[in-house]
Design a protein around this nucleic acid. Structure first.
Length: 595
DNA sequence: GCCGTTTTCGGCCCGACTGTTTTCAGTCG
């Protein structure tokens, strides 16, 4: 229950069958995670607990919502790790919003105990001891007991543990907060540089979810290659931004920076580098999957290498580790146990899109609206970033100003060399799904990017209909930041994205993967579903200033996590191919659907 | 709780660090 992958806030479960909206996979997964937490405190079979956690993860990785299938009476597809019992529970949760097992567990255990699990240093065993020994049920009671020195007298606890738990509890329960990749990565790279300065450090690299380029990151994992005599962890805790040292051993240290970010550093011998890099890059699920692969071949895989009995077969490089398991090297973005091991085994790993494949950017702003730079400055910066074309898609422009900008772009294109500006707009999708500019103006553009910026609170049905109607418009090209989420600030729109994706497919519209670090909109799995439905994805910077084209690499990373290949991405097309594609789709839609 | 062409029962990934203990349990990743 520590970290959830999908930031859609689960709504409070209701026991009524009539619900205002369908139960999402995320909500079912949250119930399973809750059951796993409760079972953990209840001292249940660890493998039973794991089954619930694995099932929760599987549900979060699905690209299709299950509740509508269940509502239609269809049988659920066979999912790995989900058998007869969990299938029944999924149906139960989908139709009632809750599950009898959870209610039973909650009735026998105080509700606060689950919350205690999120305090560092407190697991199920210690929570049980504190509950039975001192009646502690909440973080508040934990603090009081620690301050009064009661905890040290519970068997298995001592003064130091008491102090540590008090400190962790006082820092609150917000430790599972995740920050945008684009915010954390620069900090992490500075730390890498700092570690490299220590003599004897042979290598230092990002690991964990940062290396897998997840859109949000919970902490910074760094792997260092150095001989045991090198005092790497001592060097780390001397860093000026380190505020708290959580753990410091010879080969491992965990610290908290002034910013609140946690940093975990592991030190390994250079000879173990490859195996350690695989291990600490994860994900946990990927590691379990490749360990299973090892076991099936009579091998053992750990962070020191691949072993056959006592003999080490591989471990110096990542490639050698995968090779010893009979696999090609798997790029970190795919290491989520979403089918990459099977694909690797059968030689069907995708040839993923790369930053250098991008020929253009179809969403950018200028100082004509709320951007910081002129048309020309943006054009030259795009060229500098290796692009051949850039669509200018300002918003908040009225017809008159937009027509003026069109003329300015024509004039600029006449003298620019090596970069072409496309005439576009980020037009408001109004509450009823109509577009905020007249057809006569939209007709003069190369592309129309539609987006929602208001009325986030519509019902599921209203919001979905709004987007479907917008895409019906004859000039509609591309739906920008479809979810409208802002990481840690605004939840994704309440709408049926599967329906939107299928509609985009039917209408020949494209969807954006917005690469702004706070947006990263769509999610990887949603892009994957779009790909399945043959919807082209446009990876756009939504640049407000010249420096923002650097964000494109985050968008590409998200696309790679979605298994997208060059052909799945609209803006890998050459300018001429793009223009003919735009011409073919925009005019082909129903003439009567416009507003 | 899931899984299986050597299994319908007996497996299910594995090591570092901490703190309390005096050989190891609990937590974490």
């Amino acid at each position: 229950m520590k970290l959830t992958a999908v930031p859609q806030a689960p709504s409070a479960p209701t026991s009524t069958v009539q619900r205002s909206r369908a139960v999402s996979n995320e909500e079912i997964a949250a119930v399973f995670d809750d059951i796993a937490d409760l079972l953990e405190i209840d001292d249940a079979n660890p493998f039973r607990i794991r089954a619930y956690r694995v099932a929760a993860r599987t549900l979060r990785a699905l690209t299709v919502e299950l509740a509508p299938l269940i509502a239609r009476g269809e049988t659920l597809p066979k999912l790995p790790g989900i058998g007869v019992d969990l299938t029944a529970k999924i149906s139960e949760i989908a139709s009632t919003g809750d599950c009898a097992l959870r209610q039973r567990l909650r009735s026998t255990l105080p509700p606060g105990l689950v919350e205690l699990l999120s305090i560092a240093g407190l697991g199920p065993k210690r929570i049980k001891h504190l509950y039975h020994g001192l009646g502690i049920e909440t973080a508040q009671q934990l603090c009081e007991a620690a301050e009064q020195g009661h905890i040290r007298h519970v068997p298995g606890f001592g003064e130091r543990l008491e102090a540590r738990l008090l400190s962790a509890a006082q820092k609150g329960l917000g430790k599972d907060r995740r920050l945008p990749l684009g915010v954390v990565e620069p900090v992490a790279l500075q730390l890498i540089e700092y570690l490299h300065q220590l003599p004897g450090v042979e290598d230092a690299r990002l690991a964990g979810s940062l290396r897998r380029m997840r859109d949000t990151v919970g902490d910074i994992d760094i792997l260092v290659a150095a001989e045991p005599a090198v005092a790497v962890t001592a060097h780390l805790i001397k860093h000026p931004e380190v505020s708290t040292v959580l753990v410091k051993g010879r080969t491992r240290a965990s610290v908290v920076l002034d910013s609140g970010l946690q940093v975990d550093v592991r030190v390994v011998k250079p000879a173990d580098w490859g195996a350690a890099l695989v291990y600490f890059t994860g994900s946990k699920a990927h590691n379990i999957a490749i360990r299973k692969q090892a076991r099936e071949q009579g091998l053992k895989l750990n962070e020191y290498g691949v072993f056959k009995g006592q003999e080490r077969l591989a471990g110096v490089t990542e490639v050698s580790v995968y090779q010893a398991l009979g696999l090609p090297w798997i790029t970190p973005e795919l290491r989520e146990d979403r089918g990459e091991v099977a694909a690797a085994l059968s030689g069907r790993l995708p040839r993923l899109v790369e930053v250098s494949d991008l020929k253009g950017d179809l969403h950018a702003h200028t100082c004509d609206a709320d951007g910081a730079n002129t048309l020309e400055q943006m054009a030259l910066a795009a060229q500098q970033a290796g692009l051949e074309y850039l669509a200018i898609t300002d918003h908040f422009l009225d017809s008159e100003r937009l027509l003026k900008q069109i003329d300015q772009i024509d004039a600029l294109n006449a003298r620019l060399r090596g970069i072409t500006l496309l005439k576009g707009v980020e037009v408001e999708i109004l509450e009823d799904g109509s577009l905020g500019l007249p057809d006569a103006v939209l007709a003069r553009l190369d592309l129309v990017v539609g987006a929602v910026h208001t009325h986030f609170g519509l019902t599921l049905r209203q919001q979905t209909q709004r987007l479907l109607r917008a895409m019906d418009h004859r000039y509609f090209t591309l739906l920008a930041h479809p979810l409208c989420r802002l990481i840690n600030q605004r939840a994704p729109l309440n709408m049926d994205l599967s329906a939107v994706i299928r509609a985009a497919s039917a209408r020949g519209c494209c969807l954006e993967l917005n690469a702004q670090p706070q947006r990263m909109d769509l999610f990887d799995l949603q892009c994957q579903y779009a790909k399945d439905q043959h919807v082209l994805i446009s990876i756009n910077s939504d640049a407000q200033r010249t420096a923002d084209f650097a964000y494109l690499r985050y968008g590409v990373a998200q696309a790679r996590r979605a298994w997208l290949e060059k052909g799945d991405v609209l803006n890998t097309r050459s300018l001429s191919a793009l223009k003919s594609l735009l011409a073919a789709t925009a005019g082909g839609r129903s003439q009567g659907a416009g507003n």
